[in-house]
């Protein structure tokens, strides 16, 4: 597979996941701000911006401004709209590799963005975020249903998994920032669409230990950090059919594997006690994996600038 195409697929995976997760996070947090009379809008918005890596914003922030920055800014690939546009741009360059149905869905989503914006004005942000979640689910479904399980699929799922680890780690950070109060776990679990599953698993008990355990370590819930790391790990292993005899073949595998075992073999209590640093290590892990994958698979995919020269 062409390095450039592999890179595009990897980023389609990342951007679509980013769009969906950002939509989920914003949706639930904004909802809570409205529903909870004791929340200070300014502080809550600052905290949200901080977690999403947009601390540098100056001036007073409001819920509407957060929606503008993290939801609708088309030039920011970390906003919902920007991520969808970036995913579509990547798919445009990899069009013969993604299935036609996936491309059409991404393209139709992109064409639907102006309408969706109007919907924000008419029906509020919730309708918009729900639409984004649905579009992303359709896309995930089509990825599943129409893409061969070849290298391209591996890169796409790898990107998705790396992004998911990153986003879930950020999401958990909002809890750390909120000071660890119980209602914020509710928010977090809702963000991940994990609320019902969690309740079923732990029979309604809502304490820190269980909630953190669930989002970090659950083997079966696909949005847990552990599940996403495991998926990334198996994608990386499948990309290297020839794994040799000693250890693993690539840097990326080492980084992901270390991170996964670190979660797996430390007890939930220990992890919770040190949650802040566990999360920042996870975020760092994601960018290291990203670099390692780029180095190994996406070599020199930018154009060369030539200069002409002549001598008499």
């Amino acid at each position: 597979m062409l390095s450039r195409i592999a890179e595009s697929l990897y980023w389609i995976g990342r951007y679509v996941e980013r769009a969906e997760d950002t939509a989920r996070i914003l949706d639930v947090h904004l909802h809570r701000m409205l529903a909870d009379p004791w929340v200070d809008e300014q502080t809550a918005c600052r905290s949200l911006l901080g977690v999403m890596g947009a601390e540098a914003i100056e001036g007073p922030v409001s819920a509407a401004r957060v929606v503008g920055l993290l939801g609708l800014d088309e030039h920011n690939p970390s906003s919902v709209v920007g991520a969808l546009a970036a995913a579509r741009e990547n798919a445009r360059g990899a069009r013969e590799t993604v299935s036609s149905e996936m491309w059409e869905t991404l393209n139709a989503t992109w064409h639907g963005l102006p309408d969706a914006r109007r919907r924000v004005e008419q029906q509020g942000v919730h309708a918009f975020f729900r639409w984004v979640r649905e579009r992303c689910s359709v896309l995930a479904g089509l990825t599943d249903a129409t893409m061969s399980r070849d290298e391209g699929w591996l890169f796409l799922v790898l990107g998705r998994s790396v992004e998911r680890v990153d986003m879930t780690a950020r999401l958990l950070s909002t809890h750390v920032r909120a000071g660890g109060s119980i209602p914020s776990w509710l928010t977090l679990l809702r963000s991940c669409g994990a609320w019902e599953t969690y309740l079923r698993t732990y029979r309604g008990s809502l304490d820190d230990r269980h909630a953190a355990e669930f989002l970090l370590l659950d083997r079966l819930f696909p949005r847990s950090v552990f599940a996403a790391l495991s998926t990334a790990e198996s994608c990386l292993a499948d990309l290297e059919p020839d794994h040799g005899r000693a250890g693993v073949a690539t840097d990326a595998q080492r980084i992901v594997g270390r991170s996964r075992t670190n979660l797996e073999f430390r007890g939930a209590d220990e992890l919770m006690a040190d949650l802040g640093s566990v999360l920042s290590v996870l975020e760092r892990t994601c960018s290291q994996v990203n670099d390692a994958v780029s180095r190994r698979y996406f070599r020199q995919t930018s154009a060369v600038l030539w200069v002409s020269e002549a001598v008499a």
Partner: peptide, 22 residues
């Protein structure tokens, strides 16, 4: 003209060409 028969010409990618000698 010269353009049809240059002794050496080409393209390269890298920093500035700082000299040439014949």
């Amino acid at each position: 003209e010269y353009g049809d028969v240059p002794p050496l010409k080409g393209v390269y990618s890298g920093p500035e060409n700082s000299g040439q000698g014949v």
